[in-house]
Amino acid sequence: MNRKHQEIIASCWHALLLVLAMYSTALQAAPSSLQQQINDAINLYVDETHNGGFEQIEVDIQPVDTRLRLSDCESALELEHRPRNRSTGRLTFKVSCANPENWTIHVPVTIQAFDNIVVSDLPIAKGTHLSPSDLRLELRDVSRLYGGYFKTIDELVGFVARRPIPAEQVMNPALVDPAKMINRGERVVIIGEGHGLSIRTTGLAMEDGAFGELIRVRNTSSDKVVEGRITAPGQIKVSL
C-alpha cells in the first residue's frame, strides 16, 4: 500500500470518527420523549403557579438519569414541589406516573423569577424621609429575596430610612420605618364615629405613632384616655 492510499484511508477514518462523535453528541442533547414530557409538565406547573406574577421566569430542569430506564408515562404526570413555602429558587419536584408502571422520581429544578422592584437610586442617609427621587424601579432576580421587597415606589414614599442604605440596594421592610404622623405631647384631632354619628374633639397624644397605628390620647374636654387609629397627620379615629 503506497503512501497515497494510506492517507486516503486515514482521512476516511477521521471523517467517520467525526460523524460518529457528532451523532453521539446529538443523541445526548436530544431529550427523550419521557424527558420532554417531564419538561413540559414542570413548565406548565410553573406557569400555572405563578400565573403572570412576574415579568420573566426562567426554569432550569436537571435531566433525568437515563440509567433509571423509566417507561414513558401514558397518563398525565402528577407533580409536587418542595419546599412548599416557596415557589422560586432551588426546588425539588416529585414527579409520579400511574400508568402503565407506577413510578416516582425526584427532579431538581431551579426557578429564577425576575420582576421590576424598588431599589435605592443613590446612597440614602439614616433618618431620611424617602421620596420618589431617592428610588427607582429595576428588573431584578427576586428568587431568593426572602426578606421581601417592594413593587411600587408609592409604597415607600413617606417612610424613613432605618439605617444608611447604599445605592443599588433592593429595598425591603427591614430597611425602613413608617414616618411618624403624631408625636407624644402633640395636640391631635379625635374623630369619633359610630351609629350614624360623627363627633370631633381634641386631645393630647400620650405616645408617638405612624399611619395606621393605635395610640392612646387624652381627651382635653373629658380628661378621659381613648385609643384610636392614626388616619392622617395629627388625627385619630375612635369607634363610638
Score class of each variant (00 low, 15 high):
180 K>M: 14
139 L>I: 04
234 G>N: 12
98 A>I: 06
215 I>E: 08
127 G>S: 01
141 D>I: 03
228 G>F: 05
100 P>L: 07
40 D>Q: 13
117 I>P: 04
150 F>R: 03
63 P>A: 09
5 H>R: 15
21 A>I: 08
150 F>S: 02
203 G>M: 06
91 L>N: 06
210 A>I: 10
14 H>S: 12
181 M>H: 14
128 T>I: 01
47 D>K: 04
190 I>V: 13
207 E>K: 05
25 T>E: 02
145 L>A: 05
205 A>I: 07
81 H>V: 03
211 F>H: 08
130 L>T: 04
5 H>N: 15
106 H>W: 11
223 D>W: 07
36 Q>D: 09
13 W>I: 08
240 L>Y: 13
1 M>D: 12
83 P>Q: 06
123 P>K: 02
198 S>F: 08
89 G>D: 09
100 P>T: 05
167 A>K: 14
80 E>Q: 14
60 D>A: 10
42 I>F: 01
155 E>D: 15
121 D>R: 15
115 D>F: 02
108 P>N: 13
195 H>Q: 09
231 T>P: 00
4 K>N: 03
134 D>R: 01
237 K>Y: 03
69 R>C: 10
45 Y>I: 04
134 D>G: 02
180 K>R: 15
32 S>W: 09
228 G>H: 12
207 E>L: 04
151 K>C: 05
35 Q>I: 03
136 R>Q: 07
203 G>H: 11
214 L>P: 12
102 N>K: 06
68 L>R: 09
157 V>R: 03
77 L>P: 01
129 H>T: 11
3 R>K: 15
196 G>E: 00
129 H>S: 07
194 G>I: 14
235 Q>N: 05
36 Q>S: 15
172 N>H: 09
29 A>T: 06
77 L>T: 04
14 H>T: 07
96 S>M: 07
23 Y>A: 13
67 R>N: 11
144 R>F: 04
